[in-house]
């Protein structure tokens, strides 16, 4: 019984952390129409940044500053935001292909550098020995994990509320306006490139926050955690949930993460040994099929966006967006 409970706690923690990342992506793609092919770079920057700043010194390794946790976390978010700012600054003025290619490139380069810069990142071994905050008070058992889960859920709720408020705020309307008709927005004296950059960086910081929590939860991060498949998983979560829809994003995260862990478990339990070698390939094909299939047959997601359109009179009107992703 304790086994089931602790597994549930573990599963929910990871799914909630991924939900935060999906929410960050939703701000970029769903609300602003920006492509992020390097979700994993922001995620990894948050995780690595936090662990390098907050971890203990390691022999032959730079970093390990043992900073006070909130400070380390802040550093991680700064790293994620800085990286996004650099890529966004260079590409957001150009046609959207450039952002797609550059973000994809930053993810490839990020993993590559983490794997090779051994004296900062621990290389393929990753960063070990991080001490999770409050360990002394809470111990390391189920109590700690429950407390951690609750903190993650609180963070998720805060991010959710923040983004919901943002969507209906003047800034959110501006994002939507730029997404729908950039020329019109520009003619109104708005600088679309700056506003998109702000949205892109904010989204990346939220994804970085998810990465930081992920690194903290495992007290460990290695290049295996920043492989491209994570980007695809997070996309699949948003596509299934319906781009533009924060509730859907969270539902999509739990659904896809559940399907992913279940398929992994089922393959290792029931598939013949010779097939098990290909577990990864089979799961990757499935993720690819979810992405392509949803775009083909249900581009609005399983839980379509309920668009809140503000009326000139100040009242709001709700409508279901059925035409697809924009």
């Amino acid at each position: 019984m304790i086994g089931v409970l602790s597994y549930l706690v573990f599963f929910t923690t990871v799914a909630a952390i991924l939900s935060i990342a999906v929410l960050g992506l939703n701000l970029q793609w769903g609300n602003t129409g920006l492509f992020n092919g390097g979700v994993v770079a922001s995620f990894g920057a948050g995780a690595y940044g936090t662990l390098i700043l907050g971890g203990p010194p390691q022999e032959g390794q730079l970093g390990g500053f043992e900073l006070f946790y909130p400070l380390a976390l802040f550093g991680g978010l700064l790293f994620a935001g800085g990286l996004a700012w650099m890529v966004g600054k260079l590409t957001l003025r150009l046609r959207h292909d450039y952002l797609a290619i550059a973000t994809f490139g930053v993810a490839v380069a990020f993993e590559n550098v983490m794997r090779n810069a051994t004296n900062v990142t621990g290389g393929a071994q990753g960063i070990r020995g991080f001490e999770r905050p409050m360990m002394e008070t809470l111990g390391s058992g189920l109590t700690y994990n429950l407390a951690f889960l609750i903190s993650v859920l609180v963070v998720l709720a805060l991010v959710y509320v923040f983004l919901e408020r943002l969507t209906v705020s003047p800034f959110g309307r501006l994002l939507r306006a730029i997404r729908e008709d950039e020329t019109a927005a520009r003619s109104l004296g708005k600088a679309p490139a700056r506003i998109r950059l702000l949205a892109f960086v904010t989204g990346s910081v939220i994804i970085g926050l998810a990465g930081a929590l992920y690194g903290t939860f495992y007290a460990f991060v290695s290049p295996q955690d920043v492989l491209p498949i994570l980007t695809f998983q997070i996309w699949a979560m948003l596509i299934v949930g319906g781009a533009g829809n924060n509730k859907g994003a969270i539902a999509g995260a739990f659904l896809i993460w559940g399907a992913w862990t279940f398929s992994g478990w089922a393959l290792s339990r029931f598939a013949p040994i010779e097939v098990q070698l290909y577990t990864g390939s089979i799961q990757f094909v499935l993720i690819g099929m979810v992405i392509v299939g949803m775009l083909l047959w249900r581009p609005q997601g399983l839980f379509p966006e309920r668009l809140v359109v503000s009326q000139p009179g100040g009242g709001t009107r709700e409508k279901t967006q059925a035409e697809g992703l924009t």
Binding site: A100, W235, Y278, I291, L295, P299
Partner: peptide
């Protein structure tokens, strides 16, 4: 995909196709 969505959906779809083709070849 283009008929249902827009350019961005095509980019996502192309990633999905890459994942499928690559891993089917592996299988």
């Amino acid at each position: 995909v283009r008929q249902k969505g827009e350019e961005l959906s095509m980019v996502f779809a192309s990633f999905g196709m890459a994942l499928i083709i690559r891993n089917v070849i592996g299988l």
